[in-house]
Design a protein around this nucleic acid. Structure first.
Lengths: 139, 139
DNA sequence: CAGCTAGACGAGAATGAGTCTCATTTTCAT
DNA sequence: ATGAAAATGAGACTCATTCTCGTCTAGCTG
């Protein structure tokens, strides 16, 4: 089942009605493998109002269909939440390129930290900052 | 050697002149064990202009005397960079409280990921999101 | 120690991402 | 088909951060 169908279904269950703006945002997210910023979505969907973009992202986030990716502060990005999939990101400090990675050991280590903590840990983020291969070549 | 002296010395070496604004910002950071936002610094130092707060933080960051802590996007926080010390944070999703932690295994795992990656990894962040003990009690 | 000048500073304007409001359009249960 | 409720988009608004620019000051020079 495609993520977009899943999303639409879940929104229905949650009592949301259909609407053109939300559909377009969902379709755009469907086509992205990694994070997109709210502003880019807004730019790429001229017929959809800013408010609707942010509203939709918020709703999708609450239903856990999408999650926020923080990559340095300025702008927030979002990406599809595919069940059973879990990755983190490396960001290039020169060009901003975002590359996903996953690592079981890292996850285990984080899990253990959560176990030992007083916090009830709900989620986590890992961000590696560095220089991507392309920018390394350029000196 | 206190961090503030170290910072002042390093700024001197880098060719910066002394100045009241920077001194005050440095003193404030000296007294904080964990992250403070630029805006809070601005508020707590009424005699220092906003521009100087951001300027100083930027300079300190470039000299690696301070580093950015991203905790969810809205506001950026900064904290002292004590040599030989390295920690990450847990944020409470309810009250926003920030608690530092460190874990050698986690660091090892991250290091290994960096080794195996095409990126030349320079730094990393880990953020655990959850509910702090105090907020757990409140239901 | 006075003069000088580059660098430091602060006030306030400008920017821009994200939020809010509200009049209008759509949806869909009846 | 109808109408109450939800969804939408234009644009005003907020507010953290950045920029601008005139003034001030550290600290070198003589």
């Amino acid at each position: 089942m495609r993520w977009s169908e899943q999303a639409t279904g879940r929104l229905n269950e949650a009592g949301f009605r259909a609407g053109a703006a939300r559909r377009q945002v969902i379709e755009l997210l469907e086509g992205e493998h990694c994070a997109v910023t709210a502003l880019e979505i807004d730019r790429r969907l001229p017929s959809v109002g800013r408010a609707s973009v942010y509203r939709t992202l918020e709703q999708l986030e609450q239903l856990d269909l999408v999650h926020r990716v923080d990559v340095g502060g300025e702008v927030v990005a979002f990406e599809r939440n595919d069940p059973g999939e879990h990755h983190h990101h490396m960001v290039c400090v020169r060009c901003g390129r975002l590359v996903p990675f996953e690592d079981r050991e890292l996850e285990r280590a984080i899990h253990r930290v959560g176990e030992g903590a007083e916090f009830e840990v709900l989620s986590h983020d890992v961000l590696l900052r560095g220089v991507c291969p392309r920018c390394q070549e350029e000196g």
